[in-house]
Design a protein around this nucleic acid. Structure first.
Lengths: 256, 256
DNA sequence: GGGAACTTTAATGTATACATAAAGGAAGGA
DNA sequence: TCCTTCCTTTATGTATACATTAAAGTTCCC
């Protein structure tokens, strides 16, 4: 139990790995539209491999929630409603909030505190950049993702970590999923400033061992991701900027 | 998206279904001890089927978190520490808390409220039974599980529902996992009384649309499951009463 | 004696063939 | 014309064979 969590699909350059990655990409890009049935034989042709790794990949993607097993056999590509997106983000925030509370309750080392401080400083540089061009936003996304990963790691809970990974298999649930879409809004800078303030406050709460505060802040932080979500989901142009945007069918709002 | 979630292993009487169920049982019973490597060929002999469904089953059980893929190939049976158990229960409480909040915020129908009321009445009967014998406890477990399922359903969130299912794939994380073990403690009746009081309060909060209250209560409710967890985990006799008890290695406490 | 390199064996990944089940179409009857 | 039943086709589940890789064992050199 000492090596990082490894999934089957992550081992080397195997056919199964290829299948998982390519199918993911096809789902995310809309090449496989939400709701469509996935025919093994068609995928075999498309991916240029035998049925076995394709089947394994489909089984794994089903567990990721990107495809769904059909009762009579086979799989179909899942679609997600605006509510699903909202709930997934709320769910991630809830789990990351739990992680932040654990980190605060369990305490972190001085070194970890310094590492977080460094991260915050780098995020500060990005957030205060003169213009928020694509390069700056990419840097923000990278650092933001790293910040989130570190918080989760500092919770020192395999169970929680694993659970968060599962939520994040849905790309629109990731911490930076809407950053690019938001960067087009006129309050883009404000959103980054607020987010960064929350980052800073979370770290302060963790170091200060204020579990409840850390959790509440981390949860609220995930909600920043949802600013302008409504208009982002309904704008085709903005939706192009959202990872996994093609999985979302906004006319399925509220439908269960 | 109108049928209940179906996993590959749940389709009919297939070999894969058999393999998943039998492997689960072997893991839960300790027939496959935690940490041991799972050899495909040995399992093929043991389960009396070809490698294909065995491999599929292992892939699925890996996603359930019961087995772990090894980087160089194959799988091993996972072991869980006392911290894992604690964290899994806390995690379930957190997610059920979120579900309860959703239910409260989104509102439930009059019929659903009555259904919950009926459930509470039946739970009352069980909790006030003259003696807490095995039959009574089984009834409690059944009704308790049903109560939890209904709360989750009333959240009307596929994403959250799915996530909770994933947590509950670890049997010791289920709402009634420690009920039988607790029934041997001298405060068994008190635990049931407190739990039922919380059930009632959660329903009240949901109907009253008090999201924060519902969430907090539901989270605290999961903690009742942890009463006497320490001694339950360390007592071999009590651990026999815990679903998935064999997965737990209490001498791995805190080890990451 | 210990470590490195090589060889052999065993296990896992993949491809393919066979078996089974589901879906679709056609024909017949009401 | 519509519904039911039957047959055919197609897709998926499973078994088996082949290919590749990892692990174990042996030999040689320092």
């Amino acid at each position: 139990m000492d090596s990082p969590e490894i999934t089957r699909g992550e081992r080397g350059g195997s056919q199964t790995t290829r299948a998982v990655m390519q199918l993911r990409e096809m789902l995310f890009s809309g090449e496989i539209p939400p709701g469509t049935r996935l025919s093994e034989l068609a995928l075999v042709e498309r991916l240029g491999m035998s049925r076995t790794p394709v089947r394994t990949a489909l089984t794994m993607l089903a567990e990721e929630g990107l495809v769904q097993a059909i009762g009579t056999g086979g799989f179909s590509a899942r679609s997600f409603s605006e509510r699903d997106v909202n709930d997934a983000i709320e769910l991630r925030g809830t789990l990351e909030g739990l992680a932040a509370r654990f980190a605060a309750e369990r305490g972190i080392s001085t070194i970890a505190g310094q590492m977080l401080g460094d991260l915050l400083a780098r995020l500060d540089e990005v957030v205060t950049a003169p213009t928020l061009d694509a390069d700056v936003m990419e840097q923000y996304i990278e650092l933001n993702a790293r910040f989130h990963r570190e918080i989760i790691r500092l919770a020192e809970s395999r169970v929680v970590e694993r659970q968060i990974e599962r939520v994040m298999a849905l790309p629109f649930a990731s911490p930076s999923a809407f950053v690019m879409a938001q960067s087009r809004c006129e309050d883009a800078r404000n959103v980054l400033v607020i987010s960064q303030d929350q980052h800073r406050a979370v770290v302060e709460a963790i170091i200060g061992r204020e579990g409840t505060r850390a959790e509440a802040l981390m949860r609220e932080h995930s909600r920043v991701a949802r600013r302008n979500l409504g208009q982002a989901v309904r704008s085709r142009e903005a939706l192009e900027q959202v990872p996994g945007g093609k999985l979302i069918q906004f006319d399925r709002y509220g439908e269960e």
